[in-house]
Computed example of a mutant assay.
Amino acid sequence: MESIQALLANPTAWAALVTLVVMEVVLGIDNLIFISILSNKLPPEQRNKARRLGIGLALGMRLLLLTMIAWIVGLTAPVFDLGRTGPAGPNGSPSFETEFSWKDLILIAGGLFLIWKATKEIHHAVDPEPVGGVFETRSPAAISFSSVIVQIILLDVVFSVDSILTAVGMTDNVAVMVIAVLVAVTVMLVAAEPLANFINRNPTVVMLALGFLLMIGAVLIANGFGVEVPKGYIYAAMAFSTLVEALNMLSRRAKQRRA
């Protein structure tokens, strides 16, 4: 109780909490886009269940990882080095490196999975006769729900590790981390159904969201190779693309009203 009161009376802790909540919500949106696209492939009666289960798993993984902070921090220790580095950048550090930690390997694997999944979904959207993928069999109705959950779990692991490492890098107060994670996951839970329904009603938004996943996957791979892509550029590009798509939607609705 005393530690909570000390936390509430500490302006530094409040500043860290607000900043961390914003960062966790932003990271959670990436996770939520993926969950929304996958859940919309299920029958309507299963979609909410898949979203809630996926977000619940994301919360569980984040809280579990918070209890293993020492192990998580250890993921940043080098595992092996291929001995190659890029030329020095403006800040004096190499533009890329091949000294890999477990965190780097997880980010690279997650990025490759995101690129593969987004590319496959784009192919299915533009191909009139799409071919089944790795997670699909001849009887999709029997296993599609479990397939979606498996894919959500794989990406939850990647986003959870990234989320907790972000939290560890910003504060050493576990209470602040827990509160930030709970707030971010609550926002995901509230926004899940409206976002998924909006994506489902607007097919062009699906393509935009898949484009976002491609970009996020590329950024994860770049981070795994030690290339730091400024997050401001990424989210500015996403915001600009979203604005253009919103203008296109307004234009289409205006034409429909005039017709």
Results as ranks from 00 to 15, higher is better:
V178W: 03
D81T: 08
R51W: 00
N40L: 14
I153V: 15
P203D: 08
D172W: 07
P128H: 11
I216C: 01
F96I: 03
A191I: 07
A196K: 01
Q256V: 13
G169K: 12
A141T: 03
G133M: 07
A246H: 00
T67W: 00
W14T: 01
R62C: 14
D172E: 12
G133Y: 01
Q5V: 11
A141M: 08
D156S: 02
A167W: 04
E228G: 06
T76C: 12
L182Q: 02
G133S: 10
S95F: 03
W116L: 13
W102H: 08
V183W: 04
P203C: 09
L64M: 15
F113K: 00
R253H: 11
T166Y: 09
A259F: 11
L75H: 10
L220Y: 09
T242A: 15
T19G: 13
A16V: 10
G111K: 02
L42P: 00
S241G: 15
L38T: 05
F96A: 07
F34G: 03
F80E: 00
N223V: 06
I143Y: 14
A77F: 06
G110V: 02
L32G: 01
L42T: 12
F240M: 11
M188K: 06
V205C: 06
L247G: 08
W71E: 13
K120F: 14
F240H: 09
L53K: 03
Q151M: 09
G226K: 10
F225G: 06
F145T: 05
A15H: 12
P130M: 10
